[in-house]
Design a binder for these strands. Structure first.
Lengths: 229, 229
DNA sequence: CCAAAAGTGTTGCTAATACACCCATGT
DNA sequence: ACATGGGTGTATTAGCAACACTTTTGG
């Protein structure tokens, strides 16, 4: 390993794929670019990493600055280092993967701002740079991850019905699940607990609401328990 | 996203965690540093990314230059972007994860070179930088990955006995497996095929050798087959 | 003939699947 | 009373785990 002060350096950026769950769709948060290149094109929220912040911090900062998104589940996804991914010059980006509760008013507010929007996965506009590839990889990761880690709850409000939870899995996995089997399995894991609340404002029997119990999960995870849908 | 020619930039590096399977141990390839910082300390093979190569290419190049390792299974692992991971200045590294066949003479040759060596995972020396963390994450990934993807074969010679394969899983997963159940399961996947060769030079009944059939795997993988140990 | 590892089936249990009806609520 | 989704149990099947002895080979 040689030291390299004197060599030209690639710029380092972060980009975030934020997923949100609408009633019937999985959506991605995009921003509209003001500047060239790809002026006016839709793109992932992101930007350059500063020298005085970690890469993780840069992702969190950009998410808040550009999209008003805060306090979401965030994990590193993959780094993209092709030569020509930015037409200006060499930019390597560390992509992140985030799960947001659309019910969160802070995020709702941000979506009202011009140049920010939620797009259904199967109805994305053309994206700037290689952001299409980044989204594709994020979707892959999400689909894989929900099967063995309890991250789905990050997309739901704190209190949710079993039907909502089931629909979440159906949307992400892209296939229907059996209601009775789903409930049996989910409840047998002993990770979500009944609350004394029910759905409001529906014109049919109101569903009981549940919440995810992270403590129980952490306890089980320590003993080698594995979550699986 | 703002453009940033004028700002100072972090240096961008790659580091590789190369795993190899000894008879009884999972080993990691390390090199001994010639230069400060961490002079003479053991470290992962790696180095700075050049402007005219992709990050993936940089990993491959460093692996060959520093350790003589070529034609191995290589995938991106994770990027490490803490502020002080390099005492000289800001360096962000993209870590890679590689699986090598120790039976490969090209790699054996490299291990003879001074300053390069294979170390058992539970007997690693103190490592330079945050390389300890990188190795830890690579081990985690390996343990996860062998369970659902047929990457274990990358650690074995092209022809191997079922006992070798079983031992591989036992070593990586850190637990004993039942011989009959293991063989039943592995064979029922129809991914490895019998050859007409047997083990040589053992002083007991010689085991039949098998080989992994990548074609069969690719065909099955397309139809949503999932490998699972 | 002995030591060492190769090779081979069955059984019980647990988990996954498939499947259909009654219930509670709001309009 | 009707429309809408909420909520519940059972039977079948498939996969996983536990378990011990015989065979082959070299020394």
């Amino acid at each position: 390993m040689t030291f390299s002060y004197e060599y030209p350096r690639a710029a380092l950026a972060v980009d975030c794929v934020v997923f949100g769950l609408d009633v019937t769709d999985l959506k991605v948060l995009l921003i509209q670019r003001k500047l060239t290149p790809f002026q006016h094109a839709w793109a992932l929220p992101g930007g350059f990493v500063h020298m005085d912040e970690t890469v993780d911090d840069a992702a969190r900062r950009e998410l808040e600055e550009e999209a008003g998104v805060k306090d979401v589940y965030l994990e590193q996804l993959y780094s993209f280092g092709a030569l020509d991914r930015d037409p200006r010059e060499r930019v390597v980006t560390v992509a992140y993967f985030a799960l947001a509760k659309l019910s969160d008013h802070r995020i709702r507010a941000a979506t009202d701002a011009m140049g920010v929007g939620w797009f259904a996965l199967d109805d994305l506009p053309k994206l700037a740079f290689d952001h299409q590839d980044i989204v594709a990889r994020a979707v892959e990761r999400l689909r894989g991850k929900v099967r063995y880690a309890p991250v789905g709850f990050e997309l739901l409000p704190p209190r949710f019905s079993l039907t909502q939870l089931q629909r979440l899995y159906e949307i992400i996995l892209g296939k229907e699940l059996d209601k009775r089997n789903f409930r049996k399995k989910i409840l047998s894991m002993d990770l979500i607990v009944e609350t004394d609340e029910v759905e409001q404002g529906v014109r049919h029997r109101a569903a009981r609401l549940y919440r995810f119990d992270r403590r129980k999960y952490d306890r089980l995870a320590k003993h080698g328990f594995s979550f699986g849908i």
